[in-house]
Design a protein around this nucleic acid. Structure first.
Lengths: 119, 119
DNA sequence: TTCCTTGATCGATGAACGTCGATGCAACGG
DNA sequence: CCGTTGCATCGACGTTCATCGATCAAGGAA
């Protein structure tokens, strides 16, 4: 693997009155935002937000993209820590990591969202 | 100006249980996240979050980048609707658009942050 | 074992991005 | 008027990214 998992960033960056951010945290935050800086990946995350687990084959069918392309986007999201994969036989199911999403939201607004897991 | 301002997106995209997002909204959201997908621009937004208005010359001095590069990043943030400029004589002062930041946070968490302006 | 299926990786290609020097343009001071 | 200052735009260069076809690895069924 070429990239390690991204460390946590627990300070707001963009909310009015936020304290200065050290260099490394800016890099980490930018990397996470970059993972969402593509319509396809926004669609994937949004799709996962509506269903607990989604098979890769479903994404290939719904997104209208080639399978390697879908796999590439899933990898980007995985390395950003926004999604995680669960292997079940031949299939791979992806699901959101709500804490990572909430952390990004906190970095933006400086306000903790009430963490609520989908039942 | 070559580009129009981005329209508003008022629905969450990434919070657990979020409804499906139409194509156009995914593109708009991805474009906004892309504006934050760079360490320099995160630094600019973070700097603006700590002070109401900042002169362009200050950014040039603090970021250690050439003036055209800073102007480029400010343009990206401006076209994303995250910052706005105020001309005062020869100088240009930039400031945050807190509503745009908060809107991005809402898209992520599905929770409205208590809008609070820096005094 | 031998197929078929699912998903990840590799390699290549075209587009987009970050960076900077040079230039343009408006506002001020002489 | 002319020269300077502050910022935006332009052009170019090197890097990164999105996309796809081909290939590979792992599992299930015969």
């Amino acid at each position: 693997m070429s990239m390690k998992e991204l460390p946590l960033v627990s300070a707001p960056c963009c909310a009015p009155g936020a304290p200065p951010l050290p260099e490394e945290e800016r890099v980490v935050l930018a990397a996470r935002f970059k993972a969402l800086a593509d319509p396809t990946r926004v669609a994937i995350v949004n799709r996962l937000a509506g269903a607990d687990e989604v098979c890769v084959c479903v994404f290939v069918g719904e997104l209208g993209l080639a399978q390697p392309t879908v796999s590439h986007h899933l990898r980007v999201l995985r390395e950003a820590g926004l999604v995680e994969a669960r292997r079940r036989g031949t299939w791979a199911f992806y699901r959101l990591v709500p804490e990572a999403i909430a952390e990004l939201g906190f970095a933006l607004t400086g306000t903790r969202a009430s963490s609520r897991r989908a039942a």
